[in-house]
Structures are given as C-alpha cells and as structure tokens.
C-alpha cells in the first residue's frame, strides 16, 4: 500500500482557497504532490456533475474548498455551494462511495497553514482507503477485456 500514490482532484475557488494554496507555497508549507488543482471563480461554480466526472475518471479523491461563509467574493456563492455539497455527499455515500474520498473545506486566503493541514488530512484519508475501486468508468477497450 505504501507505493500507492493517490490522485486527488481539487477544486479551489479563486479568491480564498486558491489564495491559501498560494500562501502555503510562499510559506513553504509542505504536503505530498497528490493534488491536481482546478481553479474556479467560486465554490458556487462547482456542479455535482464535475465531481461525478472526476470520480468516474478514476480520481481517488475529490476535495472542494471555498471561502468561509460570509467571505464569498460573490456575496453568497458558497452558501448555494454548501447546499449542493450536502446533497452530493449524501448521495455519493449512499451509493457506496467511501466518505473519505470526498472532502469539503472553507479556507481563507490568509490560512496557508490550514490549507497545508487540510491537504495532508485529505491525502491521509484517501491513502488509507487505497485506490478507488468502484464508480470508475472503464474505457471501451477496458470493458471489452
């Protein structure tokens, strides 16, 4: 299991959490190289189908991070996001996707430390689960085999 190098699709809102990741860099806080960041303007931009797509594509984990409630650059995008994530998390877990594969956080652009801490925590939890096994869409060649 030690050789398992998970890949975690990470959606970061531009204004807070992406800034926090930048700050973590400036501060040289270290975390393992398993994140693949997709920058979006706001956590409210993330639709459930993107998360489903990431899992279908074989991501071992998905992490979504936005601004703290009240901090949203677009006033209230993260509040709608919070409702979407609630439903998404429930339906995915109900279907047998392990809870440890899906993570949400609010990280402000001043929280470089928190970014690194959450990154490490997300990676640890995904690593413990091992590679994603279910809900991966095989390519036609793979399914034929």
């Amino acid at each position: 299991m030690s050789s398992f190098e998970p890949k975690i699709i990470t959606f970061l809102c531009n204004w807070c959490s992406y800034g926090a990741a930048d700050l973590a860099g400036v501060s040289r806080f270290q975390y393992p190289p398993h994140m693949r960041v997709i920058r979006v303007p706001c956590s409210g931009r993330i639709s459930p189908k993107m998360v489903l797509a990431a899992l279908r594509k074989g991501a071992d984990g998905v992490w979504i991070s936005g601004c703290h409630p009240g901090d949203c650059h677009y006033i209230e995008g993260n509040y709608y996001a919070r409702r979407k994530f609630t439903l998404l998390k429930e339906i995915l877990e109900f279907n047998g996707i392990e809870p440890g594969r899906l993570h949400f956080s609010w990280i402000s652009s001043a929280e470089g430390v928190k970014f690194a801490e959450v990154a490490n925590r997300v990676i640890d939890e995904v690593k413990q689960l091992g590679p994603a096994r279910v809900f991966i869409k095989k390519s036609p060649e793979e399914s034929a085999a």
Binding site: G44, R45, K57
Partner: peptide, 29 residues
C-alpha cells in the same frame, strides 16, 4: 462571472466563459 447560475442550471443551458463545462471537463479528463 461567479458561475453560481451555471452550476445550478440543470439543463446545461448556461456557460461561464473561460470556465465552461467542457473546458473544466477537459481538465478532469
């Protein structure tokens, strides 16, 4: 340009230019 409407649209009728569904899906792919 926050894209909250895009993520909320069930019909796929909305796009946020520069962060279009297809463009983000291409990154995921």
């Amino acid at each position: 340009g926050c894209g909250a409407c895009v993520a909320s649209c069930r019909s796929g009728a909305l796009q946020l230019k520069g962060f279009e569904e297809g463009q983000l899906m291409a990154m995921i792919d």
